[in-house]
Design a binder for these strands. Structure first.
Lengths: 351, 351
DNA sequence: CTGAAAGCGCTTACAG
DNA sequence: CTGAAAGCGCTTACAG
């Protein structure tokens, strides 16, 4: 294998120094490093004759940057289920990384079967200039440590960790819009059947729910915690008996369960009750098509996370970046006028 | 931002030299570079305390390994369509990389919008110890050059390039099995409506088709090239008029078209004609469920590609590795007995 | 206006 | 048994 042509070879041939060759080849204006147009031409022709190609690795080493962006997830990066929730984040990250001239480093190694950032004590993300992290199984202690060490990273998803940058979806706003949509159909008793965890996104949804009710004319909050499937069936039917005409819940899985429970009880949706999701797929194998919900701009969140990371890299001293992207309403077919309302009383279709 | 911890820092702390730290950290047996177990322990504890992580760029420039496996595709790595054909390759690659203790390096950067291995003339894959490549839009000149440069890589897919390693699906065997299945139902005139390209996989399918006919008792080959959709309709109907009772074709897209053409002509499948795919999805939005075809073990191919690559890395001088993984028959509902055959004449269900 | 030198963070002969 | 030194191929102050 022939030895590769280096910068030094070109400099020799052109009868000048490596500095000048570097400047010329990199198309630097003759500002910091000055050279005559004659020199420049000699350099170019020498480079061409020798077939010089800069070694990207050496470039990166000298530049002090790896031009590598890390991607860390607590589960597999490539979802086994191709229809995975996280997939669009990745397409966004890839698109933005490519346009910013970074390659992507996927941390796939695991420590005794478990993915962890601090493998054997050291921050494995250090291989990259910075990283984008996501996933719902995060280890908050690790994230905190990452912040302490001032490693540049952006989380995709709302996480209130001091000093940490994140890009989130506006679940509160999305929920508000869903409640607004339901109220616009004339519903007055809108119940929120919520799961039991108390993470940031749960709080965001609850806030959006309360805000939505207030905006709809100070409707009464009807929040029911449902921990088990059995809870869910009981809670749902009890709410209807109490006069609730519309129900919202997180995710399309639970929305699907509610539909089944309703169907088992001989109830049609939206004729007998209205139903909406707070995020989750619009189409779901279980739910069927047409669940009214809000969309999470996942691809855009991936792009925004990389952009934020690049800003962090450009200005290491800066404040954490916290972005919240709009989650637009997705009108489906599961919200209609309340059952009790005669056709004449129905408000017009909301715009 | 804290300066990154370097080898020199660890050496200082451990009270030894960089050479020793390098050897210890890389797990070199105390052969070439000798050190006491005491020194080794001091190095490890210093590395742990400092959180040392080697810079892959520097490692690579100095001629070492990075424990990074490259993934290069000519399209985006993360398919925009989550149901993408290539997705299972990636899950296999990730799984195998993790188990072999490699991280994955995704080459996402592009040169003027086009993905290319030789960006600006230099092999951009160099940063990784080796790479897995795939995609149908490959640039064969680049692949040849990669072989010439002795860069370790494995292609996923059958490509006859001298000296190149690949992991392929056994399309010939899969096609043979499909033909066998059709023949077992009693068909004697089985036509192959094939697309026009002449790449390796097309040749493999044709070979499998011919072998299958021979095995079924020297049936007559009936190969029709179809370049356009219009060709397809004409060819399909013409074949049926000539007495053909079963048709095979590549991919589920074309199979779907054939079904539509058949339906437009009032023909039912499999009552009026039998149809089978030669690979392609079992379920397809267009084709509907139940296309008889053969499966491509994509996840397994991804795993096998990484395994092969690791063997290449372990023994750089070795012969290229060429693996062909079985493509099992997938029985659907589109193959039945020929229309002309009375129930009494029908052979038993094939085992 | 131009070149010699240091440095990026590693690895690997080589000298003691 | 161990360490000082050269080298990988660049970039970028800095000195002339």
């Amino acid at each position: 294998v022939a030895r590769r042509v280096t910068l030094a070879d070109v400099a020799d041939r052109a009868g000048t120094s490596k500095s000048v060759v570097s400047a010329v080849v990199n198309g630097r204006a003759p500002g910091v490093i000055r050279f005559s147009t004659d020199t420049r031409d000699r350099v170019w022709s020498a480079a061409r004759q020798l077939g010089y190609v800069a070694n990207p690795i050496a470039r990166r080493l000298a530049g002090g940057r790896t031009q590598l962006l890390g991607v860390f997830t607590y589960l597999t990066v490539f979802p086994l289920d191709a229809d995975d929730f996280y997939h669009p984040f990745l397409t966004g990250v890839e698109e933005a990384a490519a346009s910013r001239d970074f390659d992507l480093l996927l941390f796939t190694r695991s420590d005794a079967g478990r993915r962890t950032i601090y493998r054997g004590g050291a921050n494995s993300l250090q291989l990259a200039d910075g990283a984008v992290l996501f996933g719902s199984d995060e280890d908050r202690a690790e994230l905190t440590r990452l912040v302490t060490e001032q490693y540049p990273f952006v989380y995709i998803g709302h996480r209130d960790i001091a000093g940490m940058s994140y890009v989130a979806g506006d679940y509160a706003g999305g929920t508000r819009a869903v409640i607004g949509e339901i109220a616009a159909h004339g519903h007055r008793k809108i119940s929120y059947l919520r799961g039991s965890h108390d993470l940031e996104i749960a709080a965001d949804r609850e806030q959006g729910y309360l805000d939505g009710l207030r905006a709809a004319g100070d409707l009464e909050p009807l929040i029911r915690r449902v921990d088990t499937d059995r809870d869910l069936a009981a809670a749902f039917l009890a709410e209807l008996r109490r006069g609730v005409t519309a129900v919202v819940t997180e995710g399309s899985e639970r929305a699907g369960q509610i539909r089944r429970i309703g169907a088992d009880a001989g109830l049609r949706c939206p004729e007998d009750y209205s139903l909406a999701g707070l995020s989750g797929r619009v189409y779901d194998p279980d739910t069927g098509p047409g669940l009214t919900t809000f969309a999470i701009p996942r691809h855009e969140m991936g792009v925004a996370a990389v952009d934020a990371l690049c800003e962090l890299l450009a200005d290491p001293g800066r404040e954490p970046i916290r972005l919240t992207l709009p989650c637009p309403l997705r009108r489906g077919t599961t919200v209609g006028p309340p059952a009790g309302l005669g056709a004449s009383e129905r408000p017009g279709t909301p715009t």
